[in-house]
Design a protein around this nucleic acid. Sequence first.
RNA 1: GCCCCCAUCGUCUAGCGGUCUAGGACGUCGCCCUCUCACGGCGAAAACAGGGGUUCGAGUCCCCUUGGGGGCGCCA
Length: 445
Amino acid sequence: MTTVVRFAPSPTGKLHVGNIRAALTNYLFVRKTGGKFMLRLDDTDTERSTEAFAEAIYTDLAWLGLKHDLFAKQSERIAAYEAAADKLRAAGRLYPAYETPDELERRRKRQLAQHKPPIYDRAALSLTAEQRAELEAKGRKPHWRFKLSGAAVEWNDLIRGSAHIDTASVSDPVLIREDGRFLYTLPSIVDDVGFGITHIIRGEDHVTNTGVQIEIFQALGAAVPAFAHFSMLVGVGGEALSKRIGSLSIESMREEGIEPQAINSLLAKLGTSDPVVPRATLDELVADFDLAKFGRAPAHFDPAELKTINHKLLHAMTFDVVAEDLKRLGVGGGAPFWNAVHDNIQVLNEARGWWQVVEGPIDPVIEDATVTSAARDLLPEGPFTDETWSAWTAAVSAKTGAKGKALFRPLRLALTGLAHGPEMRKLLPLIGPERAAKRLSGQAA
RNA sequence: GCCCCCAUCGUCUAGCGGUCUAGGACGUCGCCCUCUCACGGCGAAAACAGGGGUUCGAGUCCCCUUGGGGGCGCCA
């Protein structure tokens, strides 16, 4: 059997780490099993869906390298959903209900006050034809609910193992709104069937849905796909992540200069028994992917861990792979510059700061004028090489008697304005004779 | 409030009744390297949430408590 999976975001917001974990997991699974990866835009909520969000989704996925093989948009497949709805009506599984949102809300509150679960009471099911006609005559339009069996639905979850949902503890889901528009439930299933989705891999926020969805698959006479629900991500303190989604959007991470592979590396392993290590390519992640390695407990997502992985990734990156990004950041210096600074930055954007240090102007810090003025006088002719630094500092040491920290710190402070940074041996040739001389004299350059 | 899931070092986890004085990875700390920071090398500290059972024997099975997560939408 060839596998087909889908990532089905709704274009009602920006992609964040939680979404991407789902996209990535599906992607890795299908690459591992040799199937097809579908991107499906669940845009049935026409009021909240926007083209801009859809574009942002394409951008984010492309940036992360999560290429899809198939694509569909639910807003273009309404006819298929209508047909499915007709089929359910014919089977007596889809019934009209006339409560207004306000009424339903009041009932829920009442149930809650009585310590009862806020489940739809199925009042509409006992409406007579006359009562329905009367409501319609008053201008009431029905919304349509799927009639759950009330039985326990079981499935073997590829991550959670044996799972079950008692559909008696769930409200009959509304499939069609009062205005005739579909909610996501039915379209999702119709598309899963239509596109031959074999595995539904998603977050555990969907486990209750799985119960009703399996019943709908069955009511439609379709094969039920396999399910896998991974646990949610929580914050460092164990709190739900949704509260702070803004800072966790893929877009904001990209803007921050995080490498896509840092995100992929972390998200692919978080909550699994594999060690979280930087991986340069998605293929490496595919190689050891296995749903069986996922744990069931919520995993802590720590932005600091992402930074650490990013740092290690940058450390291992050669100049040619970042050349374009550096150019975009306005950073010059080529390979020599990159080789000098890549160990000292956590995110690529920080390269800009070091380029600024090289190019200037910076305000030098003269800590020990004896050392720095001697150093200026002993400064060799350019061009500087990797060997310049040690020969030159040896000469300065001989002249002034300063050595160790007393020698190097004043030089670093004068040449870069900072107390720490990349190796001066590598930085000096980039700074060059002219700027070096000025800075050693205490002049901004 | 009701339903479901989860609970081992700071973090992600291995562990599927004896081989656990609990293993690994990341992080942390120490030492080495060293002009700083970083990198790198070596080493160390660090956990079975609590309470009851079951059993010859429990991290491993059961119950309760506590804590966390998810769900209970005419959102997805």
